[in-house]
Design a protein around this nucleic acid. Structure first.
Lengths: 190, 190
DNA sequence: GTCTATACGAGGATAGAC
DNA sequence: GTCTATCCTCGTATAGAC
């Protein structure tokens, strides 16, 4: 994809992760770029199309980060810690996970964007399930009822931690407090 | 407060819990009421004032529900289960906790509303902390590092479960799946 | 590809009649 | 208290020049 389109997506992503989909506007984006409103529309003919491409790109990037964790860490509990660390990114700029934010906005999203958000959540949950299953097998993670439901709880906890942290004055402190407790309840080797 | 104002707040609450603060509008509200736009403005001169009163009322109502749980249940683990059940309310109408939704929208909220949201979260967390401490003392809840951080994790988990459920096709099933796992990890007597 | 100009609708808010 | 009428701003989107 072209350079300019990527820059538009970068700015849009920051804004949506910070303020949400409804409060995000092309006008705001153009102010942060050296580019007029109409030029943005040349690259993305509508808000719907931009939203679609934005979440698709986010899914891809996030998937690559998960792959990166697998490559750099063999221990399931370490992988979990790196996963959680991923969710700390952007917090200092008052940003949530794009798809966490869009989950709140789901009712006002075009269908195509809704589907992308759900796909993202499924993918992450599936990844977590595998990590948890491996961790239980190896014995470094607390065994619970089932890796699948445990994964859904874990994802909810991390997204929820981010949501609460987003509302807090000191986001990072709030996030760390919650997440340390979470890892403590999950990891045996700590 | 007057009858009409309450009805306006009722409709506004449904809409905000469903779509978020930015996507909520007086115009939408008036369509669901037998009342014109200008009449809403008679009761609430601005969106900010409506937001303020809305969250204040929500705080009060929610506080009363927590009191109700204390009165009807003496067992800490039962209180926790009733608390979680509270968060199931409205899910069928695609509604989140008002303050969970507003946490996502926090960046675009007037300062006064932001403060109300934070106050709500603190209050609920404090209530949970007491329940958890009591539960550990009695021995019906899993003892963890500290009731205070455990309470923050629990709140995050429930809000996160609601966020994920909000995005899911079948909200209630998604919520139940997550929350059952959560209670299973917390309650000893189950 | 990027720009100016413009159309159009939505949403917040005010003035003043009833 | 509720209404109509009106204003203003913002946001999406289009047309067409450069």
């Amino acid at each position: 994809m072209k350079e300019t389109a990527q820059q538009i997506l970068d700015v849009a992503q920051d804004l949506v992760r910070c303020r949400g989909y409804s409060a995000f506007s092309f006008a705001d984006s153009s102010k942060q770029l050296v580019l007029r409103y109409a030029s943005i529309l040349y690259h993305f003919p509508s808000k719907r199309e931009l939203g679609e491409v934005l979440v698709k790109r986010y899914r891809t990037t996030f998937g690559q980060k998960l792959k990166g964790i697998e490559l750099s860490e063999s221990s399931p509990s370490k992988r979990l810690q790196k996963f959680v660390a991923l969710y700390r990114d952007g917090l200092s700029d008052r940003q949530m996970c794009l798809c966490g934010m869009l989950s709140a906005d789901i009712e006002v999203l075009p269908d195509s964007v809704q589907q992308e958000v759900r796909a993202f959540l499924s993918e992450v949950q599936a990844w977590l399930k595998d990590v948890l299953a491996a961790g239980e097998a190896v014995g470094c993670l607390q065994p619970r009822i089932s890796p699948k439901t445990e994964a859904s709880l874990l994802l909810a906890a991390v997204q929820g931690a981010q949501l609460i942290a987003h509302a807090a004055q000191d986001s990072e402190a709030a996030f760390d407090g919650i997440v340390n407790q979470l890892l403590a309840t999950l990891c045996i080797d700590r």
